[in-house]
């Protein structure tokens, strides 16, 4: 019997794609997964347009206007939204810039950086505008599940996904919860 596959979308906002790499670490379990889910928009499929999905996985925090757009769209189109990894949960490494004023960050990078020619702060409309601070995703949209880790291990992701897909309550073992 073939059950209809659940539609899953993923994205990486202000993150390093490490959580996606961890997802790929599922290795041969990816075949099992592929029988149960169908990937929609994701860096793994290169589908650009987000369709109506059952599950959205968000990696990374919110650092710019584009992140806000993407996150809002995911929230609107995904029935269940999951924040995955330290950056999505508390801003993580990118949020370390919150220690400084945005002005200082931009000037340090673009005006005072080493080897710059004709230094200027980029202002092309193509480049997403930065928020004053980096925020975790739950400060912008409602999140249904949180999966900590930097990144969460493939085992953790596998346990979580299995529980979620089978409708069980999510319960991770001690070694599966870590913040780094």
């Amino acid at each position: 019997m073939i059950e209809p596959r659940l539609k899953v979308a993923t994205c990486s906002l202000a993150g390093c794609f490490g959580c996606h790499m961890s997802l790929l670490d599922l290795d041969e379990r990816l075949f099992d997964l592929a029988e149960r889910v169908e990937l929609d928009r994701s860096p793994l499929t290169d589908i650009k347009e987000l369709g109506e999905c059952d599950i959205g996985l968000i990696e990374g925090g919110v650092c710019n206007a584009e992140n806000v757009h993407v996150l809002m769209e995911f929230r609107a189109r995904c029935k269940t939204l999951i924040a995955i990894g330290a950056c999505a949960l508390n801003g993580g490494i990118p949020a370390m810039r919150n220690q400084f004023a945005l002005k200082d960050c931009l000037e340090e990078s673009y005006l005072r950086g080493v080897g710059l020619v004709d230094p200027q702060i980029p202002n092309d409309p193509e480049i997403p505008l930065l928020l004053a601070q980096v925020h975790p995703v739950h400060e912008v949209v409602k999140i249904d599940y949180f999966l900590p880790g930097c990144p969460p291990s493939a085992d953790t992701i596998w346990t979580f996904v299995n529980q979620l897909l089978s409708g069980q309550p999510v319960a991770l073992s001690y070694t599966q919860i870590h913040y780094d």
């Binding site: 924040a83 949960l89 508390n90 925020h135 975790p136 739950h138 949180f146 999966l147 900590p148 919860i177």
Partner: peptide
């Protein structure tokens, strides 16, 4: 699992 509240940074 997550800090839940709004961060003060």
């Amino acid at each position: 699992l997550a800090p839940h509240y709004t961060h003060f940074y």
